[in-house]
């Protein structure tokens, strides 16, 4: 093969790759464009801070959905992060008899459709307590735990073994080595995993449908049904009312910005490495 045909082949490949890139970017950019164009118009201070109004009435906002989303995500994180990190430490550092089982379960769970998580909590908890923010958080935890566990496990595995040996050889007990040396060394990776986990659950709708249910008022506690941005978007977007549909675009825009910020956060954290 001579130089010319090789060059031509190379150029052809570059064109193909560029084409693939454009094909991927078209839907993404058009989605972002559409949400931004339709959503930005709805954004105002009132929109961010006030309660929804009944259909047809002007004004109103999604303040309670933002509050609810924050509450759900915070509670789910409070449940998931410690469990996930401890599980990851167990699999990576202790390699006990259960560790391969945990690894397998985590892998299966991470592939679970989110609606299944919702149904699971719905069946398990709702009959006893009724719809609540807590139930919603639990459903989100079912989704978050595998994500954070896998990310934490991977970053613990990436801690070089000589770091563990250095601590052990100083006469530091194993558990202290795991918590104060290995875990600390893996913190950046774990932090990245946590943010990705949060980003994932903040957009989830399906598990909340059966658990948090939704609410038109300010959320008053973990044991009450609560609203959330994805829920609100789902309800408003499927409603026949124009004003609600417009507000759904606004809420979608807010959600998009939050997820985008979280992803940027991941990049900043990861760059520190």
């Amino acid at each position: 093969m001579n130089l010319r045909t090789r060059k031509m082949k190379g150029n052809a490949m570059i064109i193909l790759v560029a084409l693939a890139f454009v094909i991927i970017m078209i839907p993404l950019m058009s989605m972002l464009y559409m949400i931004a164009i339709r959503g930005i118009g709805a954004i105002s201070l009132e929109f961010l801070t006030s309660l929804p109004t009944p259909p047809g009435e002007p004004g109103g906002g999604v303040g309670n959905a933002i509050q609810g989303s924050l509450m759900l995500v915070a509670t789910a994180s409070a449940i998931s992060i410690p469990i996930s990190i401890m599980a990851a430490v167990y699999i990576s550092e202790y390699r006990g008899k259960l560790s391969s089982a945990i690894e397998l379960i985590t892998d299966v769970l991470s592939g679970t459709p989110s609606i299944v998580a919702g149904v699971f909590i719905y069946v398990l908890i709702i009959p006893r307590t009724g719809f609540s923010a807590l139930a919603g958080s639990l459903a989100l935890s079912v989704l978050m735990i595998p994500t954070v566990t896998i990310a934490s496990y991977e970053s613990l595995k990436a801690v070089p073994n000589h770091i563990r040996e250095a601590a052990i050889a100083l006469g530091v007990p194993k558990w202290k080595t795991s918590l104060f040396v290995v875990l600390r060394s893996a913190m950046i990776g774990i932090g990245t995993g946590v943010i990705l986990g949060i980003a994932r659950i903040s957009g989830e709708t399906a598990p909340l449908l059966f658990t948090a249910l939704g609410n038109m008022y300010w959320n008053e506690g973990l044991l009450q049904p609560t609203s959330a941005l994805p829920l609100l978007i789902y309800n408003y977007a499927t409603s026949p009312y124009r004003s609600w549909q417009a507000q759904a675009w606004g809420a979608a825009f807010i959600l998009l910005v939050i997820v985008l910020l979280l992803n940027i956060g991941v990049r900043i954290v990861a760059r520190k490495r």
Binding site: H162, E165, A166, A169, L170, V181, R184, S185
Partner: peptide
């Protein structure tokens, strides 16, 4: 009984 390893391994954190 202390130990020093082949590659220098200070704790990176």
């Amino acid at each position: 009984i202390g130990m020093v390893f082949q590659r220098p391994n200070p704790f990176p954190t």
